[in-house]
Design a protein around this nucleic acid. Structure first.
Lengths: 214, 214
DNA sequence: TCATTAAATGAGTGATTACTCACTTTTGTT
DNA sequence: AACAAAAGTGAGTAATCACTCATTTAATGA
């Protein structure tokens, strides 16, 4: 992964909606599946071509390089990742319509729904993410920027309402983020589940809000 | 990763303690570092040889295949992983010497200590683990077998003592395991920290026991 | 010191890889 | 129907890879 600016690519993505040929779509489809399963490095363009039923040259005609093919998969996902964190999630709590516990539940469900729909692309992304330091350096601040200010707002409101403990916002943010991220990674990346049932969601919500102690 | 039986290799490991040459040690050292950083697949034997200051053939003389080199790194780590979950962790609670909360704290510290000491090898392991389904299939049951019965015991005792909620043991186990595993992965594999300070440990312990709600 | 064993070397090998490019086929326009 | 543009092909290329093996060097023991 070169020092290609990923954030620029994310920003660019709405500018044009290219028409894709059927073969192009098939290449993307197959690449998602094989990258998700074996990782980008362990997947050859020859294999993708074969599985997609196209000539190897076709991949390069459409995507230029193998890396661009990877980006063509990841960038829309990253864009969707942040845009699916819809405002409504946050405004409902701010407007006093729901409790903080319900907010956590909604947030968790929102993330699970997004990952369930994009399970394979998440795997493609995650498997590259964990050993590309430059990718982490670029994206972690981006994720924080997209979520932290909004989380800060709802945490402060919940603290004012006496719903959660009076600890520094950063600490609460950290605990929530760690637990949710950890949960999603163990389920989707490690255990390879396709979805998460409501019981399990309730368990994690309960854990976050009340812990396991009496 | 072929269907080479990893558990047999773990069991075999105490049978002999081979004397290692200085070059052999250097090869291992360098392999750990480069596999940890870039992953096994993205690291060539030529690169390892160069960095270790040896001929490429030397790697094959000592390890036979690249894969055996990887196993020579991972297997001792997996063995240590389970043996470092010392009995004392569990017996202290069973003998009523400590609270369940203290048990969680001790457990977390034990895991953090182990991973801090073996940070790079953990990264080598984790980066292979997440996309080798056969590795997961072999090791997840093994990890569970090593930990779950003992966890079950302490959870039941804590429930009898009224320290934790009366939910099914499997549910409590799940919540503890998910939170701790998630925490360790986010810290060591994603954020790439070298250690975890006591404040952060206390945060997670508090979260597990009491949650963030009031 | 010498013979044997062990450790190490590095040029070479066959296989694999991402990619190129001349050519062919398909699609769209006039 | 003719032509241009777009899409697609697949043989070939240079580079890279894990590994081999004849040879050299170093270590060991009598």
């Amino acid at each position: 992964m070169s020092s290609f600016n990923l954030l620029d690519r994310i920003a660019e993505i709405t500018k044009k909606s290219e028409k894709q040929t059927p073969k192009q779509k098939k290449i993307l489809e197959v690449a998602i599946t094989t990258f998700a399963e074996k990782g980008y490095s362990n997947t050859s363009t020859a294999e993708i071509a074969k599985l997609a039923g196209v000539a190897e040259g076709t991949i390069f005609k459409h995507y230029g390089t193998k890396e661009n093919l990877l980006l063509a998969i990841m960038v829309p996902f990253l864009k969707d990742n942040t845009s699916s964190l819809v405002d409504e999630l946050f405004t409902e709590l701010m407007d006093e319509k729901i409790s903080f516990k319900q907010f956590i539940r909604n947030l968790l469900k929102n993330r699970i729904e997004f990952l369930s729909k994009n399970k394979e692309i998440f795997l493609v992304f995650f498997k590259e993410f964990i050993y590309k330091e430059e990718l982490k350096k670029e994206l972690i601040p981006y994720f924080l920027e997209k979520a932290a200010p909004r989380l800060k707002e709802v945490i402060e409101i919940a603290q004012k309402r006496g719903e959660i403990i009076d600890k520094p916002v950063i600490q609460i943010t950290n605990m929530i983020a760690t637990t949710i991220a950890g949960f999603l990674i163990t389920r989707f990346a490690i255990l390879n589940v396709d979805s998460v049932n409501d019981n399990e969601i309730e368990e994690i919500v309960h854990l976050i809000m009340h812990g396991i102690g009496k």
